[in-house]
Nucleic acid binder design. Structure first.
Lengths: 262, 262
DNA sequence: CGTATATTTGATATCCTTCAAGGACGGTGG
DNA sequence: CCACCGTCCTTGAAGGATATCAAATATACG
C-alpha cells in the first residue's frame, strides 16, 4: 500500500511530511516549507493542559511526538475526550475561524509540539495549493473519525466501541510509522479509554477482559495486538475506509491532480 | 446580530448565498458564481435514499429546500443518523478526497438539491479564495457539530441530549431564515430523534414528555419552541459557540481579511 | 373514513454506572 | 534492598438509566 518512492522525502522527515507525503507528491520546496514551519517547538510534560476550553487560540499546534487529547468537561463533572491527536495531527487548524477554543487540550505523555502561526495556514492556502489540499484532506479525515465515534457511541456495544477504537489507533499509528503489523504501544489508561468512548472505567475494564478472554485483542506490557485481526475487525464492525489516506480516483483535476496513485 | 446590509445579496438569494453572506462579504461576481453553480437541480421525494453507503460519490450536493439525513446502518441493524443537513448545507464537499460515500443519505421531507460537479469545488479554491475560505468554514462548523454530538452521546443524559439537539436545530434554522425567536417546525419523528441521539424511540418519548412537563420545551402541531430559553440552555448545557457563524477576530490577515465584523 | 404512521403507556430485562474495597505494579526514599 | 506510596487495574454488589417487547391511542393522509 505504501508508495513513497516517487517523492523526495528525507529519512528524518517530520511526521507531518511523512503523512502528507503518503497522500500527495511533494516537491522539495513544499517539504522545505513544511519543515521550516515547524521550527518553533514546545516541549509539553505529561499531564499538562496547555489549551483551555473557552480561552483564545493564538496558534495552530502540530503534534510531533507523544499523545495529546482534546476534551470537554460538562457541568455535571463528566469528561468526554473528543479525540486523540497523534504525531502528524494538527490541533486548531481552524484557528482563523474559531478564535476561542471549543475544548481543552492536554498531553497524555511527554510531547513535542510545533507552534504554527495562523498566518502560515493562510499562506499555505495562498501559495501552496497542493499542500492546502492536503490540509483539507486532514480536516476531512478528522470529521470522518468523529462521525465514526458518533456511530460507536450511539450504536455499538461497549466491547465493540473499545475494540473499534483500538483498531483505529492501530491504523493511525501505523500510518505514521509508530505501529507495526504486530501492534502498538497504548498510552491510554482504562479511565481515558472510558472518557473517549463514553463508558465508566469499571465497564471498560470488564469489557476489555471479555475481549482479551475471547482473543479479540491482546494487551501485555502496554503493547496492544490483535491475534486474529479479521475476527476483531468483523466483531467491531470496523470499516477502515474512514481512515484511508489517499484517493485512487482518476477524475481529479485541478488541485488534486498530483495525488499519488496506488 | 445580522449585518447583511454591506453586501449585494438579492432578496431571492439561495440559502447558500445567505449563509456565506452572513460570514464573509461577497462581491457580486462571487454571488453570481455561487448561484450559477446551483443550476443543476434535483427534486427528491420524502423518504428517498439517494446516496448509499459504499457507493461512489459522483457529485457534491447542496440542500436548497427540505431536511436531509446522513446515516449508517450497523450490521446489528441499528441506524445511526450522523447528522441532519438543512438548507444551505453541503453534502459530500469532500468528494475530491473520499471517492466512495462513507454513509447513506436520504430526504426526510420533499427536498430540492443542487448537484455540483466536483470540479466546481476545485475551481472555487483556485479562483475565489474568499469563497474557499467560506467552504472551509462550513467544514469546520460541520466538525464542531459532530464534536458536540459526541459529547452529547457520551456525557449527557437522554433529556439533555434531546434538548441540546433541538436547540441546535433551532439556531441552525434561524441562521438560514427558517426559524424565528418563536421556534421552528420540526421535521423529525421521535424515532428519528432517537436515531440521531443514540436513544430508543420509547425513551425519546418519555424524555420529551418530561421536558415538556418541565416547560423546557414546547411542542405543538410540529412547532417547537422554548418557553424559557435560558433555562433550556442551561439545562441542556448548550454553548452556542460551536455554531457561531463569523469571526470577530481582528488578527485575520490574508484570506479572511474580508470577514464581516460585529 | 379507513389505513398507515406516529405517539403514548406499561411491564420487564439488560446494560451500564456507582460505590466500595482489594490487589498489582512501578517508582522513591530510607 | 525493602518499605512505602501513588496510580492503575480488578472484582463484587447494588442501583439507575435505557432498551425491548407489547399493545393501546392518537394523528396524518389518501
Amino acid at each position: 500500500m505504501k508508495s513513497e518512492s516517487q517523492s523526495a522525502i528525507p529519512e528524518n522527515a517530520s511526521p507531518l511530511v511523512r503523512r502528507l507525503g503518503r497522500t500527495v507528491l511533494l516537491t522539495s520546496e513544499e517539504v522545505d516549507y513544511l519543515e521550516t514551519m515547524q521550527v518553533n517547538q514546545a516541549a509539553i510534560s505529561k499531564g499538562d493542559e496547555f489549551i483551555r476550553d473557552g480561552e483564545p487560540l493564538r496558534a495552530t499546534f502540530l503534534v510531533r511526538r507523544g499523545w495529546v487529547i482534546r476534551y470537554k468537561i460538562t457541568p455535571a463533572g463528566r469528561r468526554l475526550i473528543i479525540g486523540v491527536s497523534l504525531p502528524g495531527d494538527f490541533i486548531g487548524l481552524h484557528v482563523n475561524f474559531n478564535h476561542t477554543s471549543l475544548y481543552s487540550v492536554a498531553a497524555l505523555t511527554n510531547a513535542s509540539l510545533a507552534l504554527i502561526e495562523p498566518v502560515r495556514v493562510l499562506e499555505i492556502h495562498r501559495r501552496f495549493p497542493v499542500l492546502a489540499s492536503g490540509l483539507d484532506w486532514m480536516t476531512v479525515r478528522h470529521s470522518n473519525i468523529l462521525s465514526e465515534h458518533k456511530v460507536s457511541l450511539g450504536a455499538r456495544t461497549a466491547a465493540q466501541r473499545i475494540l473499534h477504537f483500538l483498531l483505529e489507533l492501530w491504523i493511525r499509528l501505523e500510518q505514521v510509522g509508530l505501529a507495526t503489523a504486530k501492534g502498538f504501544e497504548l498510552e491510554l489508561t482504562q479511565e481515558q479509554i472510558g472518557d473517549c468512548m463514553g463508558l465508566s472505567t469499571v465497564h471498560v475494564n470488564r469489557s476489555l477482559s471479555r475481549l482479551t478472554k475471547e482473543k479479540l485483542v491482546h494487551i501485555g506490557k502496554g503493547m496492544v495486538s490483535f491475534p486474529e485481526t479479521s475476527r476483531a475487525i468483523s466483531f467491531a464492525d470496523f470499516d477502515e475506509r474512514f481512515l484511508v489516506e489517499f484517493s485512487t480516483d482518476s477524475n481529479n483535476g485541478g488541485i488534486n491532480q498530483r495525488f499519488t496513485k496506488t
